[in-house]
Design a protein around this nucleic acid. Structure first.
Length: 103
DNA sequence: CGCAGTCTAGCAC
DNA sequence: GTGCTAGACTGCG
């Protein structure tokens, strides 16, 4: 990975690969990129060039918390979307053991 | 609950 | 071209 592309592009590609009804954590993404730039991943998502192709709402904290979202409804809309996709949201928390997607 | 650590991208000099 | 700051986070104290 990370060949011919910048870190942010790589992150976007991974996020795009997340299947519906599944979520991933910043840690997993960073790990998939062989790095520990959890924060850089968030930066890539919030500064991404194609938000329509990047379901940032499927990217949450490693604790299962939905975390933040640079979208309109912030974390609220994010949780609503995830639940709509079949992800069990509980008080803004997701069960990573069941919906946590691993690369 | 609060501080420190790790990485990239962006802005300033 | 080089250096510093900030950030959608994580882990440990």
């Amino acid at each position: 990975m990370r060949t011919n592309m910048s870190f942010d592009e790589n992150v976007l590609v991974l996020v795009k690969k997340i299947p519906k009804g599944r979520v991933t954590t910043y840690k997993e993404i960073a790990r998939a990129l062989d790095s520990r730039a959890f924060r850089a991943v968030g930066q890539a998502l919030k500064r991404n060039a194609k938000p329509v192709e990047i379901p940032c709402h499927r990217v949450i904290h490693a604790s299962g918390e939905v975390g933040g979202y640079a979208g309109k409804g912030s974390s609220r809309e994010k949780a609503e979307l995830l639940r709509m996709e079949g992800v069990e949201i509980r008080g803004g928390m997701v069960d990573l053991e069941r919906f946590g997607y691993r690369f």
